[in-house]
Design a protein around this nucleic acid. Structure first.
Length: 591
RNA sequence: GGGGGUGUGGCGAAGUUGGUUAUCGCGCCGGCCUGUCAAGCCGGAGAUCGCGGGUUCGGCCCCCGUCACUCCCGCCA
């Protein structure tokens, strides 16, 4: 390489006029006029137009004419200001161009499989197979640079606030609960397995007991579960833990972090403290524990209106212990077609609801397939409760509570999108607090809502023996535009309480000792009260960038089947490797 | 595990009630061109229509299966 750059492709301006400079980069586009040839030269900093003129060097110009997209070149020449009227105000460097005197072709490129700078509509298979090219495109480059910047702000924030960054093991131990583990066989210990961490949970609690008050880590986590648009099996948590704190202390740190992020990234002032909502209210009014507060369409509880309803579907649902709830779509009569309303049924069937009922509030009375069943006074009581006015459309679900919440929660979002009720530029942060300690699993047994190290609210401790499902915990989630951006809790720092929780979860003493022995032991050696939280970094970056998929903020993401099309992972391994690990595959046997 | 969507030259798309020489744009190759900036003009190459069956005189089109990508439900303490 003879010509080394003196500048990057994004920095030359009018002030550099007449300077002799050198640039390195990739050919993005060429415009060949036979006489004069323009090339757009790019690197990650920007784009500079370079000009090849045969009157400067016929030889150089001739080679330039053969350059194609993604060829790698080095050029030297003189910065000139563009002729009158020829400036390009779309480019930072648009007032200048570089007349090339010397050209070095560092590497020719094969014709790229797709237009790397306009790959949004290209099929994922091609993009993921050629990820190294996709990542050369402006869009993903900017996303990755943005991510780096945000991560750096976060790291600085914690360092500036007396947090210690500590790395925890990637090779660790399988946990009995939670997501499926990714397993790694141990060669040295025949027949034994490591697991990749689902989160550094136990280590960070251990670090609090060690006295590393205020720990943080940008930690890679692994969960072997199915993927979604906002979920990858390998993802990054901003993990933190603090000693001698209560819930409000942890929440305050996170609020301050977001305040800094909003200021530095968007130059916006985040209003603190962030609003808080209880889990119960979120489920009732928004149907999910991560409510999107950018729009209304709140869910209204109607069981007292309909408990004796003439409409059997409603009355029976309530009699069976279920609920009737509804949302009011203001002015929906004008904006929703009959088809829109009919399509609700297949839509809510996804969430195991049998159907969705509706009432159009017309000027001349209600229009609906169900009102004819109502008894006297029902419609009036309903309108009153829903604040219904002429032009509104009321949408109902009657079912068991989980189905009502999920269905109406989803319909709420569905109609908000359809009716453009969401300001896409808003970044809405809020807290959901007072989660229940336990949820019922499919057998009706208690399973932790957060994780088994979460502390119950002190005032609810007595209820642990009476009604475990009534116990609330000191757990909190931070919600960004209806997505869980992070969650945490105050932890149990008392061995007896921890043992009690394990036993409520059906983890007997032996299993507890085997799986979490060190934690139970450590809790007996001066464990301070502590609590923390973990943020989903990928998801936050995604929401900040308004990206539609988490793939857009991860350099090398997996496909929905959790494979990597670039490396072709996961792949086969040799019989020797397996043998060394004492592993035998059963795949052939299963058929 | 279940449901939906997509699959046509390298990329993005069109393709009528089943009969076309499978169309268009970009890119690619050749040529012209001294001021463009996703340049323009002329010419050219490039496709067993994801794969496998079936129905039919005849399938890009209809049916069955299958694969890949994708969105959702389940799952994700």
């Amino acid at each position: 390489m003879k010509i080394k750059r003196t500048h990057n492709c994004g920095e030359l301006r009018k002030e550099h006029k007449d300077e002799s400079i050198a640039l390195n980069g990739w050919v993005e586009n060429y415009r060949d006029y036979g006489g004069v040839t323009f090339i757009d030269l790019t690197d990650r900093w920007g784009l500079t137009q370079i000009v090849f003129d045969p009157s400067i060097s016929g030889e150089v110009h001739k080679i330039a004419q053969s350059l194609r997209s993604q060829d790698v070149i080095a050029v030297s020449g003189k910065v000139t200001s563009r002729p009158e009227g020829m400036a390009n105000d779309k480019l930072d460097t648009g007032e200048i161009e570089v007349y090339v005197t010397e050209l070095e072709v560092l590497n020719k490129s094969k014709t790229p499989p797709f237009d790397i700078h306009h790959a949004e509509d290209v099929n994922q298979e091609a993009r993921l197979k050629y990820r190294f090219l996709d990542l050369r495109g402006h869009h993903l480059q900017q996303n990755m640079i943005f991510r780096s910047r945000v991560t750096n702000i976060i790291r600085n924030f914690f360092i500036n606030n007396e947090f210690v960054e500590i790395e925890t093991p990637i090779l660790t131990k399988a946990t009995p609960e939670g997501a499926r583990d990714y397993l790694v066989p141990s060669r040295v210990n025949e027949g034994k397995f490591f697991a990749l961490p689902q989160s550094p949970q136990l280590f960070k609690q251990s670090l609090m007991i060690s006295g590393f008050d205020r720990y943080f880590q940008i930690a890679r986590c692994f969960r072997d579960e199915d993927l979604r648009a906002d979920r990858q099996p390998e993802f990054t948590q901003v993990d933190l833990e603090m000693a001698f704190v209560d819930q409000d202390d942890v929440m305050a740190v996170i609020e301050n972090l977001f305040e800094v992020l909003f200021k530095e990234v968007f130059n916006k002032d985040l209003k603190l403290p962030l609003p808080r909502m209880t889990y119960d209210q979120a489920m009732l009014e928004y149907g999910k524990d991560a409510p999107d507060l950018r729009f209304g369409l709140k869910i209204v509880e109607l069981s007292d209106v309909f408990k004796d309803s003439g409409f059997g579907v409603f009355a029976n649902a309530i009699a069976d212990g279920g609920f009737v709830r509804a949302i009011n779509i203001k002015n929906g009569v004008d904006s929703l077609s009959r088809k829109d309303l009919d399509e609700m049924t297949p839509f809510v069937k996804t969430y195991r609801a049998k159907g969705a009922a509706w009432i159009k509030v017309n000027e001349d009375g209600p229009q609906s397939p169900i009102v004819k069943f109502f008894k006297g006074g029902e419609i009036e009581a309903l309108y009153e409760k829903m604040g219904a006015e002429t032009g509104d459309v009321l949408v109902f679900i009657a079912d068991k509570e989980s189905v009502v919440c999920q269905s109406l929660g989803a319909l709420r979002l569905h109609f908000a999108k359809k009716l453009n009720l969401i300001d896409e530029n808003e970044l809405n942060l809020s807290w959901v607090v007072d989660f229940p300690m336990f949820e019922k699993d499919s057998d009706g047994n208690p399973t932790p809502t957060h994780h088994p190290f979460t502390a119950p609210k002190p005032e609810d401790v007595d209820k642990l023996d009476e009604d475990v499902f009534a116990v609330k915990s000191n757990a909190y989630d931070i919600i960004l535009n209806g997505s869980e951006a992070g969650g945490g809790s105050v932890r149990i720092h008392d061995n007896e309480m921890q043992q009690k929780i394990f036993s409520l979860l059906g983890i007997d003493e032996e299993e507890a000792r085997e799986k979490f022995g060190f934690l139970l032991e450590a809790l007996q050696y001066g464990a301070p009260p502590h609590g923390g939280l973990a943020l989903g970094l990928d998801r936050i970056i995604m929401l900040f960038l308004k990206a539609e998929s988490i793939r857009e903020v991860i350099a090398f993401p997996k496909t929905q089947k959790a494979t990597c099309l670039m490396t072709d992972a996961p792949g086969d391994v040799s019989a020797e490797q397996l043998e060394e690990l004492c592993i035998e595959s059963t795949v052939e046997l299963e058929d």
